[in-house]
Amino acid sequence: MSRALVVARRELMAAFDSPAAWLVLALVPALTAVLFFVLGGFFAAGAASLRDWFAAVPLLLVPVAPALTMRLWAEEFRSGTEELLFTYPLRTSELVLGKFLGALGLLAIALFFTLGAPLTVAALGPLDWGPVIGGYLGSLLLGAACLAVGAFFSSCTRNQIVAWLLGAVALLVFNLLAVAATSAAMPEWLGGILWRLDFGQRFAGIARGVVAVDDVLFYLLMTFLFLAWNGLRLEARRWP
């Protein structure tokens, strides 16, 4: 684990040497604030609540999470540095976990810069902090699952744009499963499964302030599954 953390730290530091990471850090709070304060009906509704703010998070992560992970493996494959990486005294799982934690750290920092929104709302009215804490916890859990999906697709290609595209499409599908589950053409048994696999519905539950163990387990298991698949892809490259 400690070696995974070393990789994570190195990834995070390396990310800050690229303007792309700074751009993501600047865009996430700015975009959420535009959606909530400028385009959304915060002042018209007059409610001291961040419900609408958190409602945008699942869709916001559709482009952002793959953007944070697209270079994780695709860049190594493109430049051929994965051979060098595999010579380090690190297990594949440590490499996967380390790079994932680095990306998660970057997302957590981006979320930190959005704290201005709840602080503003709290200054304007009696904000219930429970759903806000739930919302941020849910954002981290959902973000972890989205990053794991993005990391997996990054390990499937050497082209960053293709990695981003595959990740974004996959996340969009995961966010629309609940809608598909309620369509008339969907058989009931399949609808039930799709409903349970939807990323957004579970996040909505946590963001309203109810942290259910099954929702937390869902995100952790989805993160684990995609990271494990990521590991298998790397193993295939390491030992062809």
């Binding site: 219930d128 099954d214 869902f218 298991l221």
Partner: peptide, 29 residues
């Protein structure tokens, strides 16, 4: 096969997790 088995294990765990009831209500009221 490993990948599919992994997905199967995770799917089984998700089914079990669906029956786990405890939850934490963070709202003030």
């Amino acid at each position: 096969i490993s990948g599919l088995l992994l997905a199967g294990v995770v799917a089984s765990l998700l089914v079990v997790a669906g029956h786990v009831r405890p939850r934490l209500d963070l709202t003030q009221d």
